[in-house]
């Protein structure tokens, strides 16, 4: 009875989503599935792929560089994700203050997200230059002690990259900022009546109220972090001493420098699994912390 109307709406709905549907089949599903096939071949682009079963996966388990790259990537993630979450909220709180000239402040804070990575990488290599950089210049000025080697030091190179990522917090902070503006003023007002301090208000009102956005950003951060590539490719090339050989970078090297597209596909699959598991775990853990009360707008 209703089936005619339902049918019509289904057809209309499908028509509207058809661009995504086609794109999904052509640019996602097909490559996604064919990469399973490539991951089971020896393929160098020059000659046709040759089926080798699970050999790539077996090799991966024994490859010390895969282990190194995974270690580097997790190391980076462990610092970058929590720090950027806290820092992103702090910046958003700052930019949510009601002061004159906020447009200019927001622009200044957002600048690092706009500067092309190639350019900002150069500036950072320069700022953190052990001998001539400003940062070490300041360290010497205040502490009368030579600063560390930063990118040139295998123990600090990853942390240097984390620093750099905190500086590029603008995009994340902006999303937090937008969500801060949705927190009802009345909640703060009643807290004021109870004599709550600013810190208490942030912890007990702001953070729970924006927790869905925090989750959103953490997951986006997770996905981005595991694919971290550009800065390492441009600035350190994986060095010194493999200390910034991130997973995506090693994958890229295999695909495009070592003639191992098949192996790279297998690596990509492992990466997908890792991201999938991490995301699922995050979702699961989040159910206890995330507050979905205010979603009806």
């Amino acid at each position: 009875m209703a089936s005619a109307a339902v049918k019509k709406r289904r057809i209309q709905g499908l028509l509207f989503i058809s661009p995504w549907l086609i794109g999904f089949l052509a640019f996602t599903l097909y490559p996604f599935i064919s990469s399973i096939y490539y991951s089971m071949t020896a393929y160098d682009v020059i000659s046709p792929p040759e089926f080798i079963g699970l050999e790539n996966y077996v090799n991966m388990a024994e490859d010390p560089l895969v282990r190194k790259a995974l270690y580097n990537t997790f190391y980076y993630a462990v610092f970058a994700i929590p720090l950027s979450t806290i820092w992103g909220i702090c910046v958003a709180l700052l930019l949510n203050l009601k002061v004159r000239g906020m447009t200019l402040y927001r622009t200044l804070f957002y600048i690092p997200s706009i500067v092309p990575v190639v350019a900002s990488s150069m500036v950072w290599l320069w700022l953190l230059n052990p001998q001539y950089g400003i940062i070490n210049g300041l360290i010497y000025l205040f502490f009368n002690h030579p600063g560390p080697g930063w990118f040139a030091d295998p123990k600090l190179s990853k942390m240097s990259l984390v620093f750099m990522s905190l500086w590029g917090i603008g995009q994340t902070a902006l999303i937090y900022l937008a969500s801060l503006q949705d927190v009802p003023e009345s909640l703060y007002e009643s807290a004021d009546l109870d004599g709550a301090t600013t810190l208490q208000k942030v912890i007990h009102i702001t953070v729970p109220m924006i927790s869905p956005v925090i989750l959103f950003n953490v997951i986006m951060g997770l996905i981005g972090t595991f694919q971290y590539f550009t800065q390492a490719y441009i600035m350190t090339g994986g060095g010194p001493a493999d200390s910034t050989l991130f997973y995506a970078l090693y994958l890229y090297n295999n695909a495009f420098n070592f003639f191992k597209m098949g192996y790279a596909s297998a690596m990509a699959w492992l990466m997908f699994l890792v991201i999938f598991v991490m995301t699922a775990l995050t979702f699961k853990a989040s159910s206890r912390f995330v507050y979905y009360g205010g979603e009806t707008r």
Binding site: V6, R9, R10, Q12, G13, L14, F16, I17, W20, F24, F27, T28, Y30, P31, F32, S34, S35, Y38, I223, F226, Q227, A248, L251, Y252, A255, M261, A264, S265, M267, A268, W269, M271, F272, I275, F276, T279
Partner: peptide
């Protein structure tokens, strides 16, 4: 538009965000 399979398919949309670029880059 309300149609029956809409929300199920939307879950797939969200899932695609989780696929790293590196997986599809080569194919």
């Amino acid at each position: 538009i309300a149609w029956p399979e809409r929300d199920a398919i939307f879950v797939v949309v969200i899932a695609t965000m989780m696929i790293p670029f590196a997986v599809t880059m080569i194919p």
